[in-house]
């Protein structure tokens, strides 16, 4: 770039006669702005607030942040569940399983008798509780544990219900096991006879 370029650029430096002549000649075409007449109806429109455009990098960062937040919440919920479970395992129960079974067994037997008699007479038993999803039952039991730990007023009722159902279950298991034993003995008795017969035959 020389001096003439400077003149062409910002009219500094040594003037270039050719450029000056061109300026003089072409200057006759220069726009002499008449005042702008704005008609009455012409007005700028109202600006609308629009959602700012997000660059792709920001969008990716926001997505990652959302995923991390989601994971954090999920992990937090998992951790909240875990101590309850350990607590329920480590907390000594006031009544042991065997004691519960022995103590509550008569009541449970009476309840079962009542229910079976009801089925025999009316054909309608106590209201069947619908099957629940394992996860929901687990969640329910967790919730129950939490309630039992957190709220002593509810703990009494809940514990009584739990103990009753546990006793029922234990009784049912005992009945089932005794029946199985009986069936096993009956099944073994003829086999023993056969064995002796066979031995006799062989001998």
């Amino acid at each position: 770039m020389n001096m003439n370029d400077d003149y062409l650029w910002d009219r500094t430096g040594e003037p270039d006669p050719e450029i000056q002549e061109l300026e003089q000649v072409l200057g006759t075409l220069r726009y002499e702005a008449p005042p702008l007449e704005i008609p009455a109806g012409v007005e700028p429109g109202k600006r609308t607030v629009s959602f700012p455009r997000m660059s792709p990098a920001w969008a990716v960062a926001a997505a990652i942040a959302l995923i991390v937040m989601g994971l954090g919440i999920w992990l937090g919920m998992q951790r909240r569940d875990t101590p309850d479970r350990t607590h329920s395992i480590t907390t000594p129960s006031p009544i042991s399983n065997t004691d519960q079974a022995t103590v509550k067994a008569p009541e449970a037997v009476q309840q079962m008798k009542d229910s079976t008699s009801a089925i025999a007479t009316n054909g309608t038993g106590p209201k069947a509780t619908p099957l629940r999803h394992p996860q929901t039952t687990r969640a329910g039991s967790n919730r129950r544990r939490n309630l039992a730990v957190g709220n002593p007023a509810l703990a009494g009722n809940e514990l009584r219900e739990a103990e009753a159902s546990k006793a029922q279950l234990m009784l049912a298991l005992r009945v089932a096991s005794s029946k199985l034993n009986l069936a096993l003995k009956k099944a073994q008795a003829p086999n023993q006879g056969n064995q002796s017969q066979n031995q006799h035959r062989v001998g």
Binding site: L29, P34, L36, I38, P44, G45, K46, R47
Partner: peptide, 30 residues
């Protein structure tokens, strides 16, 4: 005016300048 003069006849350029400014006023919010 300069942008127009580089592309259209002089008389047209002078008419178009005002039109463009009025159009720009209407669309200024964009």
């Amino acid at each position: 005016h300069g942008i127009l003069l580089a592309r259209v006849p002089r008389s047209e350029a002078e008419d178009l300048v005002q039109d463009i400014f009025l159009h720009a006023l209407k669309k200024l919010h964009t």
